[in-house]
Design a binder for these strands. Structure first.
Lengths: 246, 246
DNA sequence: GGTCTGATCTTGGTCAGACCAGTATGCTGA
DNA sequence: TCAGCATACTGGTCTGACCAAGATCAGACC
């Protein structure tokens, strides 16, 4: 029982976690690598297997490793889902955060569009254009329209070629999915929404094509502001046609 | 169907995790609540204690609960540290992400400063001013200067009164700490850095005081751009005095 | 009666060993 | 040489146990 001094200080879980983190951060454990078996790890660090499992499980929910049944534990590439999980829990306990999350989304997208103006390539432009066309085509559809809208904004972020922005946007946007879908009622309530949606996105697209960061940012920002305004008006009671659907 | 008794199909860990997630998301488990003991949870769900511990540990690294030795497990308010952990790992495996993370930070701060212009109160102004003064006082100090710089930017984000932005900024900024500290060498190398640091921050401060979002955003953005420029120049080789320190 | 103290209960922290169910591999027999 | 089965692995889980220390409550003391 005195064997535990193998890696000193920490107790159990921390020891294993620290051990693995070290290798992960140092790079001696890279994505794709397979870890040694739980049993080996346990004896190596002088802890029991359940403890090793705790550590591995912790790394799993962090999206760092993947435990494959009867195969082994392998290092994976950090994945967005972690952030999603986190934000999901975080929001569940603070529902009023939704509006707040929107602010973060605006932040990400506005920065992304600036980068997009610099870095976007033909493929990005084409993706944006496709999304733009789709928005026009699905202007009267509920889910399809929302999805087209999302795709457009997503395309902007992707065009920024920034992994971090893309990741953050992905997790934030996921939370706002329903918010996006409520676009449906808005469109039904305000016919002017249609031209707003189409024209605004077109202007945004053009600004990116023109590679004009300032204009793109400003236009996108205005776009969000107008959307906010519509939403606000809808809440105030300017709307009464939404009672039809459940 | 799946939400109801989701606690039946899954095996072990998933069962416990799903069980707890349900309560967490439904709100029947709120921050501050104490969970039932591990043993009870185990018998309740028909699994062994080690499995329960895995689930609890998973929630712990997600920052959802906190396991207190010999006290029990309590629900906590989601914490930033999760994101920190994640980004730390993510960055370790993709070091080139650092520059990318900076983009996200710029995104957050620029949005935050806009909100700050609208929402900042006297206390926020005072905090900003204190930070500004500190920057002037510590202009020649290494760590203290970096910290003052950080505090100032932090104060901006706090003044936005946006929980989400604050959380995101916290996790991102943490990663860029060393980057911040490298300010030290830059100051030594470029005397002009001093006036840049002081004047820029003052201008930013004034824009917030004036509650002018556009100007604040633009000024802050320019501030970052200039910082980038200095860093770029330092890399290029315009600098040779840094060999003194390790 | 009220307060202090200590035994006991409870809680998390951990361990050891065991069994299951598939995978991977190697050895054996065709 | 190659197919097939035994076996040694892997993760997945359970059982029962021990430890240390906070929480609790009864009994002793003031």
């Amino acid at each position: 029982m005195e064997l535990k001094r193998a890696t000193e200080g920490e107790k159990g879980f921390e020891k294993v976690f620290a051990f693995l983190r070290e290798r992960l951060l140092a790079g001696s454990l890279k994505p794709g690598d397979r870890l040694i078996s739980e049993r080996e790890l346990a004896t190596l660090l002088g802890v029991s297997r359940p403890i090793v499992r705790e550590a591995l499980r912790a790394l799993t929910v962090l999206g760092i490793v993947e435990i494959r049944d009867r195969i082994g534990t392998v290092v994976t590439r950090p994945d967005v889902s972690v952030l999603n999980d986190f934000f999901t829990f975080a929001l569940a306990q603070q529902a009023d955060m939704l509006d707040d999350v929107m602010q973060a989304r605006v932040a990400i997208e506005c920065q992304a569009i600036r980068l997009a103006c610099e870095r976007a390539n033909i493929a990005d432009f084409e993706r944006l254009q496709r999304a733009l066309v789709k928005i026009g085509e699905t202007i009267d559809e509920a889910d399809a329209g929302g999805m087209a809208d999302f795709d457009f904004h997503r395309a902007i972020v992707v065009a920024s070629h920034s992994e971090t922005l893309t990741v953050l946007h992905g997790s934030l946007a996921g939370l706002l999915t329903h918010s996006h879908r409520s676009r449906r009622e808005l469109v039904q309530a305000f016919p002017s929404m249609k031209t707003y949606l189409i024209d605004d996105h077109r202007r945004i697209f053009e600004a990116v094509i023109a590679r004009d960061p300032e204009r793109a940012d400003a236009t996108l920002r205005k776009h969000f502001a107008i959307g906010d305004e519509y939403r606000r008006r809808a809440i105030v009671g300017d709307i009464d046609k939404t009672s039809a659907s459940g």
